[in-house]
């Protein structure tokens, strides 16, 4: 399968197979008017299978969102047809406005205008807890 090379854009690589659609939705890529290619189950020496997203435009990426959904992803920024920057996404220490606390007793369920904030409490097991009530993110 051939997909055109990007001149100026972004390649989101090493996505765990099957997670690309979640990232596509979270980043709102459906709202872009440029070409976006999503490759699922691509062969990978390291991962066996992986997903890749290619975006034919330089856009701002929310690394917190991506790191939270799928740590281990790499992001290649392409400028003038060349790799200008390569970033490895890791689990962010804090994520704001991405996860939602499901604890009905949490203050976020009643206080207007309060941002949803989660903190990474266990990197090994990828566990985030609500900054207000300490409930585990689900």
């Amino acid at each position: 399968m051939n997909i055109d090379e990007i001149t100026d854009g972004i390649v989101i690589d090493h996505i765990t197979a099957g997670r690309s659609m979640a990232i596509y939705r979270f980043l709102g890529l459906d709202k872009l008017d440029c070409q976006v290619a999503m490759i699922q189950n691509a062969t990978s020496r390291k991962m066996g299978r992986k997903d890749i997203i290619k975006i034919d435009r330089l856009i701002d990426i929310d690394f917190d969102v991506i790191g939270c959904i799928d740590p281990g992803i790499t992001i290649d920024v392409i400028k003038g047809g060349k790799l200008a920057e390569k970033r490895h996404v890791d689990l962010p220490e804090t994520v704001t406005g991405v996860l939602v606390c499901k604890n009905p007793r949490c203050v976020t369920s009643s206080e207007r205008g309060l941002p949803q904030v989660f903190r990474l409490t266990d990197r090994e097991n990828k566990i985030y807890r609500c900054a207000y009530c300490d409930s585990r993110a689900k």
Partner: peptide, 26 residues
């Protein structure tokens, strides 16, 4: 406060010290 985390929210807006006297089961 019955809501967990309410005193933390209060502490971010108060201009005096806030003591948590119990927030739900937290």
């Amino acid at each position: 406060h019955p809501k967990e985390g309410a005193p933390l929210v209060a502490s971010r807006h108060a201009t005096v010290p806030v003591i948590n006297a119990g927030d739900g089961g937290h």
